[in-house]
Write a protein that binds this DNA or RNA. Structure first.
Length: 308
DNA sequence: AGCCAGGCATCAG
DNA sequence: CTGATGCATGGC
């Protein structure tokens, strides 16, 4: 029961690079699985799980996508519409990327624009999963926190067999992780983060932190609440605020962002992470999330180590 | 062997 | 308030 969705150039506001975007290590969720020339994921619809394969069929400058939907039952028109809208949302395809590029075309950051045109902020399809991804991402590498999440899904998620026979594991709900032991979680290679994960899951499960209501609050207020979760500090909070909740003024500052900002804007002088964050937010305002993504991606890809 | 990775909690000053 | 240290883990 396959069907196809086209996402046409007119629906995408500016350039888009699927490959660069999916592989850029954002904590909205674990990396999508690669297939020939594209990526796949799955979504739970009321009547069935649907697998979707996303392919970029036209180039970055005037992009269009082809999405193959696979269900075990016929896929309704309504389901196609829901998934279509969902993809526009999570891939940030409505963000007016050219406005960002032109507004800062004379700034240092334009170097990164030219390296990765069409790189976009990916929004989470599952808040809780994004929070755990953000917590796991601390003091490790992108590939390693991705492995942690895959193991959590494998050991604690629900196993689904997709229509084409592919094995798929959902991300466990907060209650499931709240009721596991820290020791058992260590099997997922999460190390000392196991304490944080269980505690965060408990706080969400018990309603102490209501993830969905956070997106209705102001950025500063939501951030303050997130910082009460053990294992959630300034960087993890901003990752979740940006990729999990879609606060575009959030600016996650990790070692890469700190280095490149010091190099480009402070003559290599040492600047605290807090001051790097304030600098980005004053300069880029509602484009802060995008700015930190481009700075992060550039510094990491170019392996910027020296402060020059 | 030692340093580092999309840091944070804790403690010293 | 800022700065140093321990923390699991694995790649280099």
């Amino acid at each position: 029961m396959n069907t196809e969705i086209q996402i046409k150039p007119e629906e995408i506001n500016g350039p888009f690079n699927l490959l660069e975007t999916v592989l850029s290590g954002q904590t909205s969720g674990p990396r999508w699985e690669a297939i020939k020339e594209g990526f796949w994921n799955a979504i739970r619809m009321p009547e069935q799980y649907v697998k979707y394969e996303v392919y970029q069929v036209k180039p970055v400058d005037r992009p269009s996508l082809s999405v193959i939907l696979k269900g075990s039952k016929p896929i309704s028109f309504n389901t196609k519409e829901v998934i279509h809208t969902h993809l526009l949302h999570i891939l940030g395809l409505k963000d007016p990327l050219n406005e960002f590029y032109s507004k800062f075309k004379d700034d240092k950051i334009s170097v990164a624009f030219n390296c990765f045109p069409g790189l976009r902020v990916v929004r989470a399809s599952n808040n809780f999963e994004s929070l755990i991804c953000s917590i796991c991402s601390q003091n490790t590498t992108v590939s390693k926190w991705n492995k942690m999440i895959q193991l959590i899904k494998k050991f604690y998620g629900e196993q689904i067999i997709l229509p084409d026979g592919t094995l798929f594991h959902t991300f466990p709900n907060p209650e499931r992780l709240a009721n596991t032991s820290v020791n058992a979680l260590m099997a997922c290679q999460v190390g000392y983060r196991a304490n944080y994960i269980v505690k965060a899951a408990q706080m969400v499960a018990e309603g102490e932190v209501a993830l969905n209501s956070l997106s209705q609050k102001r950025y500063e207020d939501a951030r303050e609440i997130l910082l009460t979760i053990p294992g959630v500090g300034p960087k993890v909070a901003d990752c979740f605020l940006l990729y999990g909740l879609g606060f575009m003024e959030a600016a996650p500052v990790d070692v890469w962002v700190k280095r490149i900002v010091q190099t480009w804007y402070f003559k290599g002088c040492n600047v605290s992470r807090e001051n790097v964050r304030k600098f980005i937010q004053q300069k880029f305002e509602n484009w802060s999330g995008y700015a930190s993504l481009y700075l992060f991606h550039y510094a990491r890809k170019m392996n910027v180590k020296a402060y020059m």
